[in-house]
Structures are given as C-alpha cells and as structure tokens.
Amino acid sequence: MPLTLPTILTFFRILLLPVMVIVFYMGFRGANIAAAFVFLAAALTDWLDGYIARRYNLTSAFGAFLDPVADKLMVAVTLFLLVQENPTPLMAVTSAIIVGREITISALREWMAEIGQKAHVNVATLGKIKTLMQIIALEVLLYQHDLEGLRLFHVGETLLVLAAALTIWSALVYLRAAWPALRDGH
C-alpha cells in the first residue's frame, strides 16, 4: 500500500504529539507557548491533509481510518496535559465529557459499520464544528498567557465548556440517527 501525502501528514500529526508533551513538560520559560505552537502545527496538518486528499483525490481506506484516530489522540492527549496542569472540577468534567463522547461515538460507528449501517453515523457538519471549537479551546488553554488584560485561560475554559456542549449535542445527533438500529437489536 503506497502512502499518500495526506496519510504522511496524518502520521506527522501523530508524531507531533510526543513532541508537544515533551515541550509542555520541559519547564523552560515559554514552554507552554512552544507546546501551543506544536499543537497548532498538528491542527494545521489536520486541515491540510483533508484539503489535499479531497482536492487531488488522494483518499484511501487507511487514511480514512488513521485521520480520525489522529484527531482523537490529539484532543485526548492535550486534554490530559491540561487537566494535569489545572486539576479543577471544571477541567476534569469537560475533559471527561469530550473523551467519553469520542470513545462512545467511535464504538457506535464501528458497530454501525459492522451491521451495514455506517451511512447513518457519517461525520456531520456539527461534528466538524465541534472539532474546530475543541481545537480553538485547546490552543487557547495551552497558550496560557493573557493578552492586553484579556484573561485568555478563562476564555479557553469557556470555549472548552462550549466545545463540551457541542460534544454532547453531536453525540445525541449520532445516537438519534443510530437509534432505530440500536432499538431493533440488529
């Protein structure tokens, strides 16, 4: 199986995760800013690999599998770092909601594919908006510096709560679409 450029970019995104973790914990002044830039680079490769795959018809089954795995790893690893750094109930609960939803919907998609109903739980626009909100929130939370009196960390917390709300909403949309198959016990 030849690797396409989008799949190589997805692998690169996954490889950036340990780099982000190492930079986050290095302890030098500005380590959080450097970690935020690594996260931003990973987020940009997510957009770029999708754009290239669609634009140049470089989609593959392996890339379709790996891309959402990379996305979920990127979000989960970053949430773990942030909860460890800021162990508040708000951070823990919103992170648990986001990670819990990802696990639940991934399992639902796998099960729906197994019973031939995958089309009912394809990625929707709401899921893309949810992912974008998560990425923005995580980027702001990693940055952890105020700008001109603007308490960015509090902005990031608010964005993360909004992302968690979108996460719940999108999960309900997927569960509603899958409900007939779940109810009928396919």
Rank of each mutant, 00 (worst) to 15 (best):
G30K: 08
A64T: 09
T131Q: 05
A181G: 02
K72P: 05
L17D: 06
Y25S: 12
K118F: 04
I103P: 02
L108Y: 01
E110Y: 02
P18R: 01
I129R: 03
G50W: 13
K118P: 01
A119H: 06
Y25R: 15
G63L: 00
A178P: 12
T94E: 06
Y25T: 12
F39W: 01
Q117F: 01
M112Y: 00
M112E: 02
F80G: 06
P6R: 05
R151T: 02
A64K: 12
V83M: 04
L79V: 05
E148R: 11
V123F: 13
F62W: 06
F39T: 00
N32L: 03
L182Y: 14
A41C: 01
V23C: 08
L175Y: 04
M91V: 06
V83P: 11
A165F: 14
R109G: 08
L166P: 14
P89N: 10
D67G: 11
V19F: 09
G30P: 10
I115Y: 15
V19P: 02
A96T: 00
I135V: 02
G156P: 11
Q84N: 03
P180Q: 13
E110I: 01
M1Y: 08
A113D: 07
A70M: 02
I136G: 05
E157W: 03
L48I: 13
A76M: 15
L81V: 04
F24K: 03
R151M: 11
A34E: 10
E157N: 12
L162N: 11
A119V: 02
M20L: 07
A43N: 04
T7D: 03
L150G: 10
K128P: 00
S106N: 07
W179E: 15
M1V: 05
I22R: 05
N86M: 13
Y25F: 15
L175N: 07
F62K: 10
A107F: 07
P68D: 03
L5R: 15
